[in-house]
Nucleic acid binder design. Sequence first.
DNA 1: AAAAATAGTTGACTATATCAACTATTATTA
DNA 2: TAATAATAGTTGATATAGTCAACTATTTTT
Lengths: 149, 149
Amino acid sequence: MKQGLIDEVRAFNRFYTDIIGLLNRNFLDSPYSLAEIRVVYEIFHHKGIRASQIMEIMHIDKSYLSRILKKLEKDGLLLRERSEEDARAFLLSLTEKGNTEFQWLNKASNEQVTTLLAPLTEKKKETLVRHMQNIIRILTPENNRNENN
Amino acid sequence: MKQGLIDEVRAFNRFYTDIIGLLNRNFLDSPYSLAEIRVVYEIFHHKGIRASQIMEIMHIDKSYLSRILKKLEKDGLLLRERSEEDARAFLLSLTEKGNTEFQWLNKASNEQVTTLLAPLTEKKKETLVRHMQNIIRILTPENNRNENN
DNA sequence: AAAAATAGTTGACTATATCAACTATTATTA
DNA sequence: TAATAATAGTTGATATAGTCAACTATTTTT
């Protein structure tokens, strides 16, 4: 593999990490951490999900997740119901308040992105998004099976 | 601004953040955190840099940086010399050992990227890098002045 | 029926990061 | 030029993020 390619990927990573860091630092007026927000996001998008599934998706420790869920429940955002098929597990969903909070965070995140894109022309915005979509396509594992190098 | 664009950017961000998280989790056999490695990186690339400059580049608190520098110095990676122009400041550089450690981290990081790219064909690798370069170009502020939307 | 695996919780701990107060020096301004 | 403000960096106290090992309660495997 050409060293140049590796350097370019690392350069992109530094660049992108900096942007994200900047956005995240300026982001939150919410009392929730990025991990907590991500958990709320997953529950919103997968109503009835189990903690063990979130654990796998997010690659976080179950003890950490347990504490996050405890906080979300204490704050009244989260509903846990015992699963009927498996009495060890909970089925997770958002309460009314949890949904409201999610909408709020969603809106804040959109505004953040809008701010990031604001200096760009419409054409550049579209080009940017096309590049992003292509990167996702290239890096998605299913797209890279059974090919020779 | 079209909502679709915003959603696509957020989708990319989730995707990329997950990849980076995965790489970072699998990364380090080194006793240094990502922040510490980034500091070493900056000093390697800007010999004689001051702490206050690193602070600005990395957007981290001076007290946190101070502790990172203390650790790097204790471990024998870092050399601090009082600036002659400004007796408050230090000029930072890496010791022999610091350079060696940097080379090691650099190699480890390259291997990480190599692993990420391994499943791709050469053509895809090159396309990927081109997309990344374009994103950097589009999002670099200097490229977006004085244009109408 | 016993053993192993899974779901989740808790206590103790480490790592990461911030804030406010401090010393020492340099730059500004009255 | 003396007083004031600003900058460079350090430290103590504290907050936040995250891990590890041990535990209970179930379910699955043998």
